[in-house]
Simulated assay, not measured.
Amino acid sequence: MSGAALDLSFSTYIDLSTPKSDETESGSWHCALSVDCQNVYSLNFNQADTVTISVSSVTGDSALRLAVYSGSTLNGTNLINGLTTDRECNAYNIGDTVAVSIPSAGPYSITIGRDWDNSADAFGTYSLNLSSTLVSMVGLIKTSSNTATQSSGYSCP
């Protein structure tokens, strides 16, 4: 196959370096028995900003938990509520929307969790939308699925 050119005209290219102001993902949970589980997304902000996190289309009789952390630590201060707890404000199958101040450029982690005790089954789905005030989000990637929640519990707000 010497001299043959590779045709990349139908290849998909994902640009993780271009800042965006909107990101959308679909996700699902399948939690272990009696475990509050979460999916973890990482992304970078190239400047201080405000991001609105909206989780909708929640299914599976799932009670939604949310957290945003600076860096990759998943049990520190949640930027949504200033506590070490996840935000959980609604009954099952109800989404949530919250605006979060991003204090500086750098990496952040977003957890979309499912509360075992307040949900009716072990699985469910959701839709995630992130919208920043500025064009500052770079490289949204799901880094973990169905892992045990590391926060100290939940609160509202």
Rank of each mutant, 00 (worst) to 15 (best):
W29N: 00
T77H: 08
L74R: 10
V68I: 03
L64N: 01
G82P: 09
V40E: 14
C31L: 14
P19A: 02
I53L: 09
T73K: 11
V98Q: 13
I80W: 00
E88G: 10
T50R: 12
L83F: 13
D86F: 11
F10I: 07
T24M: 12
V35A: 13
T73M: 06
A67K: 03
E88H: 13
V51P: 11
N90H: 14
H30L: 13
T52P: 01
C37W: 03
D96N: 11
N81D: 13
Y69S: 05
Q38Y: 07
N75S: 13
Y69Q: 08
A99I: 03
Y69E: 03
P19H: 03
I53Y: 07
V98Y: 12
I94A: 15
L16R: 11
N46V: 04
D15Y: 01
S42F: 09
S17D: 03
S72V: 05
G60W: 03
A48C: 04
G27A: 06
V68G: 00
C89K: 09
I53K: 02
S17Y: 06
R87H: 14
T24W: 11
I14Y: 14
W29P: 00
Y92K: 15
G95S: 03
G71H: 03
V40N: 06
S26Q: 15
T85E: 12
E88W: 13
S56Y: 07
G95K: 12
L83C: 10
G76M: 02
G82C: 10
W29T: 00
N78M: 09
F45T: 05
G60S: 12
E25D: 09
D86P: 10
G82M: 08
P19T: 00
I80E: 00
Y92E: 15
D36E: 14
A63H: 11
G27V: 00
R65D: 04
I14F: 12
G82F: 15
Y41P: 00
T50A: 05
A48E: 07
F10Y: 05
N39A: 00
L79V: 05
G82H: 09
L33S: 14
Y92R: 15
S17V: 02
D36A: 06
S11Q: 04
L64H: 05
V68A: 03
V55K: 05
D49G: 04
S21Y: 06
S62H: 08
L74N: 05
Y92V: 15
A48D: 08
L79Y: 06
T18W: 00
A48Q: 10
T85S: 14
Q38W: 10
S21K: 11
G76T: 02
S34N: 14
S42W: 08
N39I: 00
N78L: 09
S21H: 08
N44W: 01
I80A: 05
N93E: 14
C31W: 11
E88Y: 07
I80L: 07
G82D: 09
H30N: 15
C31F: 09
V58P: 00
L74M: 04
T24F: 10
F45Y: 13
S54L: 11
N81H: 12
T73H: 07
T84I: 08
L64D: 05
G82A: 08
E25I: 02
N39V: 00
K20V: 01
D49R: 03
Q38A: 09
D61M: 06
D61K: 04
N46F: 01
I80Q: 08
D15C: 01
Y92C: 12
N75V: 06
V68T: 03
A67Q: 04
S26M: 13
